[in-house]
Design a protein around this nucleic acid. Structure first.
Lengths: 190, 190
DNA sequence: GTGAAAACGGAGTCACCAGTCCGATTCTAG
DNA sequence: CTAGAATCGGACTGGTGACTCCGTTTTCAC
């Protein structure tokens, strides 16, 4: 699976493909994955035929969007991890992942529902992020900033949960910050 | 909206209605709200015609299920609140609501998506629960067991978030308990 | 027991949406 | 500039699922 089928897309094709990805990301995250494909094509200024030529399946489009989001997240996480001490890096990444993953699991659920496959291209970026998180968690625990009885599964669960909690709240920053306070406080040892 | 249209349903009709509600509750919570109505009718041992006579709309069925769940939750909450001191009652109710609300917001989202109405019959039990929660929160704060800067919105967000976190985890009780530890610890003052 | 009202069941209708097909259009090599 | 290949657009198809309609069955008052 090297991925050398990039037969130099024609200029307009490349433009349309990129535009579709952007629009799909926007629409799926704001209006949910149930939005008809035609509306996405319309919003991107192309016909449905074009959409299905680039992404043979709605599921494939979803997958492409997810992969991009995950890759971006992995890169940002890596950068944060390199820039700060273990404790700061851990909490900064926690915030980052929580923010980015808003609505993410609706995607994964939709993908899962569409069949057992789909994982292939998601596996890699997912693993990458999990590796980073494992390192960050271990680092923060070594530094005594996070209770030592937590593992990666609990961390992931807390990330998802915190994301959900923030969704419930409006955009007012004060209550949001209070949620972070509660969670971060709970993460500290004893 | 008095609610006096209970014209003494015929015996079989009452039985079928109850059965439909039970089956729908089970199916919606385990397999999601996307399950076709026909499968619910089938599982309840009736035809689709019967289902739609009792609940004129899929949305109406969803709403009826929700109302029952909320009412049960309100009752359990009230009982717990009466049985224990403020601190214990608060944390016990927190656990209860989290457990009960697994998958609940998929319902509300589906209802919201189906139109702006639907609220009518949900309003009352929702308010009831919120009132209880407000009292419990205030009680626990007065007792010094919960940080005083949290309000009802934050509590609700945390309940939803904790529920989501637990969903991520399997059924193994140990990690689940660790999540509760983190959240409860975070809820404590300073 | 009996007949009419109440309820049932499920085939049929209608709308919606993912995915296909092919004539029309646009790009690019020469 | 031009030919032909790559791409496009959107009408069309097939399948699915919510909801309706009506002939058949069940309940219940007498």
């Amino acid at each position: 699976m090297g991925g050398a089928q990039e037969r130099t897309l024609r200029a307009d094709a490349a433009r349309n493909r990129a535009r579709l990805l952007d629009v799909a990301t926007e629409v799926f995250t704001t209006r949910g994955v149930g939005v008809p494909t035609e509306q996405i094509a319309r919003a991107a200024g192309v016909g449905v035929g074009t959409l299905f030529r680039h992404f043979p399946t709605k599921e494939a489009l979803l997958e492409a969007v997810m992969v991009r989001r995950l890759e971006t997240m992995a890169a940002q996480t890596a950068q944060l991890a390199a820039e700060a001490g273990p404790t700061e890096a851990f909490f900064a990444c926690f915030r980052l992942v929580v923010q980015q993953s808003s609505g993410k699991d609706e995607f994964t659920r939709a993908l899962a529902a569409a069949g057992v496959d789909a994982h292939a291209s998601l596996q890699e970026p997912t693993m990458e992020i999990q590796t980073r998180l494992t390192e960050l968690l271990a680092g923060a625990q070594r530094a005594g900033a996070v209770r030592p009885d937590l593992g990666l599964p609990e961390l992931i669960a807390l990330l998802a949960g915190t994301g959900k909690a923030l969704e419930q709240l409006g955009s007012d920053p004060a209550p949001r910050e209070r949620i972070f306070k509660v969670v971060f406080d709970g993460l500290r040892p004893r």
